[in-house]
Structures are given as structure tokens and as C-alpha cells.
């Protein structure tokens, strides 16, 4: 197992290099970092521009440039942002922490309720409860997150305040302006709405996965064997049904980080929540290459990491799978 993990980690290095090279290419072509720099800093001297090109590896030759960038990235010589010459790492670190907090909260809430809803639906397929859950989930995945964000914000933040004097959930940030220090209650209140919006998507998706997976399992021969043993329905469901039904769901969950991060980006933007999404949209809008590249590296690395987690959890849940 350990050897497998180490080998996979070793293998992820070339993948990471290849994908970051593709990202580098895409950003070079798509955002023209040098032009962006000149636009943001119109009075920059020739030497300044050359220095910017050198440290970011923006040579006319893409391959050479990439390796230059890579060397500086690894040795920790990161260029400051083009706007305001901010240091990149502290900004990235904060964004990561904030997103991790929102993402974890939403994922935990979402998967928990999603799995429960899926199980409830699968227990009596075709019943009224199943139709209700399944239809709600369908509606849930059909509504893009920014739409639910706008509508919920309008209702709970703006109109709630008009009707009841105080908004139920604030609409932006982690804390109110000027607040300092740690306040759990305040933080939860600020995070509630974005969490709900990301969680709705996750609940909708996972209740459908879980339902169909559990239905497959319920019709399998070993469930009939379990029933023929005369054990309780609950035990049949939990010991024999759930464990098997979770195998595909867990795998999908770990592979799904991309779409969860996608939902986070959109939601963060709407709530001005200072996480990875806001960071990305801001720096992408500015064409801020020094900010963008490390962000991309983090995203690619976490996708690879979750892929690995998917495979490991798959093998852990299913004894038929051997990690070689």
C-alpha cells in the first residue's frame, strides 16, 4: 500500500509538469502577461519590464520560458503581483485557508444530506418519497449556483432586512468590515449562505448517485442471500447495502473536486468571500501572471491528490481491488 502511494506520488510529478506546461502555454497565449504588465504599470522602465520577464520566465521561446519559470517557482523566487507588487504566497495561503473552510463545510453538509436523501429515495423506489427526493434533486442540479445565490441573497439578506429589520445572513466576506480576531458565531453566520448554495449542488448530485448505486446493490444476488438469512432490514441495509453502494459513490466524490471547486469559485465571487475563487477571478481579470501560475499549480496538485485518494479509498472499500 505504502509503496503504491509512493509510486503514484512519484508518477504525479511528470503529470504535474505536463499539465502546468499546458497551463503556462494557455496563460501565455490567453492573457499575454507582458502586455498586461505594461497596461497595469504604464510607466514601468525597460529594465523593470525585462526584470519582470526574467523572473516569470516569459521568454519568447515558450519551452525555455517554462523551464525558467519552473526553476524560479521551485527555488521560491516568486514574482510579486503586477498590481501593487504584493507578495503572492501570503495571499494564496489565505485564499486556500478560506476556501478549504468553505469547501469542507459545504462538502461535509452536502455529502451527509445527499447520501441520506439518496438512501431514503432508494428504499422505496417509485414511492412518493422517492419521487419527491428525485425531483427535488433534479431541480437542484438544473439550477446553476449563481442563480440560487442571487435569489437566496435577495431573500435572506436584502428583503429579510427590509421586512424584519436585520438580515438573516450577511451577504459578503468572512467578517463584517473592521472586525478583527476570531468569532465562531459570526463566522458561521457569514458562511451560512455560501455554504448552503454549494451544498445544494452537492446534495442534489450525491442523492442521485447514491440512489442509483443503492438500487443496483439492492437488486443484487448477495442482498437476496442476506435477506434469506433472516437478519433485520436495518442490518441488511447498513452492513450489506450501504458498504457496497458507497464504493462507486466515494470514487466519484474524490474525482469530483473539480466541479466542487467550480461551484466554490462562482459562489465566492457572489458573496465576495476571499477564497481561491475570488483570487482567481481577480487575477485572471488583471492578467496577473505571477498570481495565476501558483494558483494553477495548487489546483492541479489538488486534483491529482484527490485522484489518488479516490483510488486508495476504492481499494480500501472493495477487497477485490488490489493496489499494485
Amino acid at each position: 500500500m505504502l509503496r503504491y502511494i509512493l509510486r503514484r506520488l512519484a508518477w504525479s510529478v511528470p503529470t504535474l509538469l505536463l499539465v502546468t506546461f499546458l497551463v503556462y502555454l494557455a496563460l501565455r497565449i490567453g492573457t499575454d502577461p507582458v502586455e498586461s504588465y505594461k497596461r497595469v504599470n504604464p510607466r514601468a522602465s525597460r529594465a523593470k519590464i525585462q526584470q519582470y520577464i526574467d523572473i516569470n520566465g516569459l521568454d519568447p521561446n515558450f519551452v525555455q520560458g517554462y523551464f525558467k519559470w519552473l526553476k524560479n517557482f521551485i527555488t521560491g523566487e516568486w514574482a510579486p503581483s503586477i498590481k501593487g507588487r504584493r507578495e503572492v504566497w501570503p495571499a494564496l495561503k489565505d485564499a486556500m485557508a478560506n476556501t478549504l473552510r468553505l469547501g469542507t463545510a459545504a462538502t461535509v453538509v452536502g455529502i451527509f444530506f445527499g447520501l441520506i436523501a439518496g438512501v431514503l429515495a432508494a428504499l422505496r423506489p417509485g414511492g412518493r418519497r422517492d419521487v419527491f427526493i428525485n425531483t427535488s434533486a433534479f431541480v437542484g442540479i438544473s439550477i446553476p449556483p449563481f442563480i440560487s445565490a442571487i435569489l437566496l441573497q435577495l431573500l435572506f439578506a436584502v428583503y429579510w432586512q427590509r421586512w424584519f429589520g436585520e438580515s438573516l445572513f450577511p451577504t459578503s466576506g468572512v467578517y463584517p468590515a473592521g472586525h478583527s480576531g476570531f468569532d465562531l458565531f459570526l463566522m458561521l453566520k457569514f458562511m451560512a449562505l455560501p455554504t448552503i448554495i454549494v451544498a445544494i449542488q452537492i446534495i442534489a448530485t450525491y442523492s442521485r448517485y447514491m440512489r442509483s448505486s443503492l438500487l443496483d446493490v439492492m437488486n443484487s444476488d448477495y442482498m437476496r442471500t442476506a435477506r434469506s438469512k433472516g437478519i433485520s432490514e436495518r442490518r441488511i441495509l447498513i452492513k450489506h447495502g450501504m458498504r457496497n453502494a458507497l464504493i462507486p459513490v466515494v470514487t466519484i466524490a474524490a474525482l469530483d473536486v473539480g466541479s466542487i471547486v467550480g461551484g466554490l469559485i462562482i459562489t465566492e465571487n457572489i458573496f465576495a468571500y476571499p477564497g481561491m475563487g475570488l483570487y482567481f477571478l481577480k487575477s485572471f481579470g488583471d492578467g496577473d501572471f505571477p498570481l495565476l501560475m501558483p494558483w494553477m499549480v495548487v489546483i492541479v496538485a489538488s486534483i491529482l491528490l484527490f485522484n489518488l485518494i479516490a483510488d486508495i479509498s476504492y481499494a480500501w472499500l472493495d477487497p477485490r481491488i488490489r493496489l499494485e
Partner: peptide
Amino acid sequence: DLFLAFPFLVTLLVVRNVLGGL
């Protein structure tokens, strides 16, 4: 795989700019 693994909006914006940049 690569496209599906990335967050949709990120790929969309980057590909959009690449298309416009060629």
C-alpha cells in the same frame, strides 16, 4: 479527462482567452 477534472469555469475562461489570443 483533463478538461473534465478542471473546474469548469476556470477551463472555460482560459480556453476562451486562448481562442481569442490566436
